[in-house]
């Protein structure tokens, strides 16, 4: 097994003349909860799209659990779970039907038992037989997480998971991230703007500005250096207002 859960080497992504991601090199170890900070359009979602095999980088290489996301995408996909910014599910189907369908695609064994356990873990058994189209944002987020962890991936990608959630929803999400990391030993890669959430859940952070990684460190080092999450916010703002060479 590879020593790194996620590794990228000089990955770039261009759309015509626009460079969305510029030679990103990143190493994330197993067990980390990595917070990827950056303003809108910094390239965070592009990074996640590449790591989840949805996009092919125009340059460079990336691996998830040692599997190349381009040349060995099927094996890479077996290692990952993905929750996009807006959780997209089949609206006309119930939560259980969505999970059953996606579980079948992932080749989950003993599917019904796994679905029950997952819904139990995320405390949303009551949603099982309701149509997804009727769910609130928070409920969708839970089922979105359920589908992403159904096959017990080693790495979980969350793209702006707290976007649009109320304070209760954000607390629930934070608790779930900590739980998944502690109980299921998942490495978590989380795109976010929310400094407070990063300070409460992450073990390491990276800051992306105009497609370039401008800072990466453990949260402990950052906090030791800057003291509190308010100062962390100042660090983030200063890094994001710098012109990238």
């Amino acid at each position: 097994m590879s020593e790194l859960a996620i590794q990228t080497k000089d990955i770039s992504m261009s759309y015509g003349d626009h460079v969305a991601l510029d030679q990103l090199t990143l190493n994330i170890e197993y067990g980390e909860v990595f917070g990827f900070l950056g303003h809108n359009g910094a390239g965070k979602t592009t990074t996640v799209n590449i790591l989840t095999t949805l996009l092919k980088p125009t340059h460079g290489k990336a691996w998830v659990c040692g599997f190349d996301v381009v040349s060995d995408s099927l094996n890479a996909r077996r290692q990952i779970g993905y929750v996009p910014e807006n959780v997209h599910l089949y609206e006309a189907m119930t939560a259980q039907e969505n999970l059953r369908f996606l579980g079948q695609l992932s080749g989950v064994e003993d599917l019904q038992k796994t679905i029950d356990e997952t819904l139990e873990l995320l405390d949303c058994k009551d949603l099982a037989n309701r149509r997804v189209g009727t769910f609130s944002k928070g409920q969708r987020q839970r089922i979105g997480l359920a589908q992403a962890i159904l096959h017990r991936p080693k790495v979980l990608f969350l793209d702006e998971p707290a976007s649009g959630l109320d304070p209760m929803g954000m607390k629930m999400l934070r608790d779930l991230i900590v739980k998944l990391n502690a109980e299921l030993k998942m490495t978590i890669f989380m795109n976010t703007h929310l400094i407070g959430e990063v300070a409460k859940t992450c073990t390491s952070i990276g800051v992306l500005n105009q497609g370039k990684l401008v800072h990466k460190d453990t949260l402990k080092n950052v906090m030791d250096r800057f003291g509190d999450d308010e100062t962390l916010e100042r660090l983030y703002l200063s890094l994001n207002t710098q012109k990238v060479a």
Partner: peptide, 14 residues
Amino acid sequence: GHNTLALVMTRPIR
């Protein structure tokens, strides 16, 4: 329209 392509294509499916 429902952006479910990404949901399906992050599964180990060709």
